[in-house]
């Protein structure tokens, strides 16, 4: 279960965020976020519910627009990017939604095909089938190909959701609470999948969670979101080597000694 050594390029920042701010009405959610994501690394973002973790990755994927600050993703500055460029950039970023967000009117096969047929004009039937089988294999769910999402378990849905983003060979993966609501064994399987994706698809990832087992298993680096800013960033042990009353309860709850 020990994490394999990742191949991280510290000279290559795939995401670089500076002074990022976002409010909803009076509520100042993000208050000056600075963050670098290096090529090939898994960065875990921890934080309490409602601290703006989902808002952060929605800003990175262009679903929301920042109030202030800069977001540079794969060399594109999101605040000045044209719509065409944003479209091209989006398919280089994979987004795994908290509740999987599978299209529930489509079979697993159609779910997986959808991003492909929509984005690769002129792709042949054979290429589509090959790609579908490849990602299904990657998440070990080949047998579900003709099932409807409603027939899948929570863990299976999560895997298919991840497979659906992998089919476009993303360079960046954003996982929104990948283990939320799953049993411990399924959690471990999902964590292993996240690591496998990092290795075999050579992705750089941000993983949002408040599951410290997940953080420990998948994270090359951990960042703690507190009061709208990243207060503690570093290795898992560095982040929790503190008596800060906002940080310690996280650790104490997850690892009862």
């Amino acid at each position: 279960m020990e994490k394999q050594k990742a191949n991280i390029d510290l000279n290559n920042e795939v995401i670089r965020i500076r002074g990022l701010q976002k409010s909803f009405g009076d509520y100042h959610v993000l208050r000056g976020i600075d963050l670098d994501l290096y090529q090939g690394e898994n960065l875990v973002v921890l934080g309490r519910s409602g601290t703006g973790k989902s808002v952060l990755i929605k800003l990175i994927s262009g679903m929301l627009y920042p109030d202030a600050g800069t977001i540079n993703v794969l060399g594109n500055e999101l605040t000045t990017i044209t719509e065409k460029e944003m479209e091209a950039l989006r398919i280089r970023i994979g987004f795994s939604f908290q509740n999987s967000a599978l299209y529930d009117s489509m079979t697993v096969r159609k779910n997986l095909e959808f991003p492909l047929v929509r984005n690769r004009k002129g792709i042949t039937r054979k290429e589509i089938d090959n790609a579908v089988h490849k990602v299904l294999d990657a998440v070990s769910l080949s047998q579900t190909i003709n099932q409807m999402p409603s027939e899948l378990s929570g863990g299976q849905r999560k895997r298919i959701g991840i497979a659906r983003t992998l089919i476009l060979n993303p360079e960046i993966m954003l996982y929104d609470e990948p283990t939320a609501g799953l049993d411990p064994i399924t959690c471990i399987e999902i964590n292993e999948l996240i690591n496998e994706v990092q290795q075999s698809y050579n992705t750089s990832s941000i993983i949002i969670t408040h599951d410290l087992t997940c953080a420990k298993m998948v994270g090359d680096r951990v960042a703690m979101l507190l009061d709208g800013q990243f207060q503690r960033v570093g290795s898992f042990d560095e982040v929790f080597a503190t008596d800060d009353a906002r940080v310690k309860p996280f650790y104490d709850y997850n690892f009862i000694e």
């Binding site: 679903m63 398919i91 908290q98 509740n99 529930d104 659906r164 983003t165 476009l168």
Partner: peptide, 13 residues
């Protein structure tokens, strides 16, 4: 509600 519309948007549709 189940974020399928968001999923569509981020996957280029």
């Amino acid at each position: 509600v189940t974020e399928q519309i968001d999923a569509m948007e981020v996957s280029g549709t």
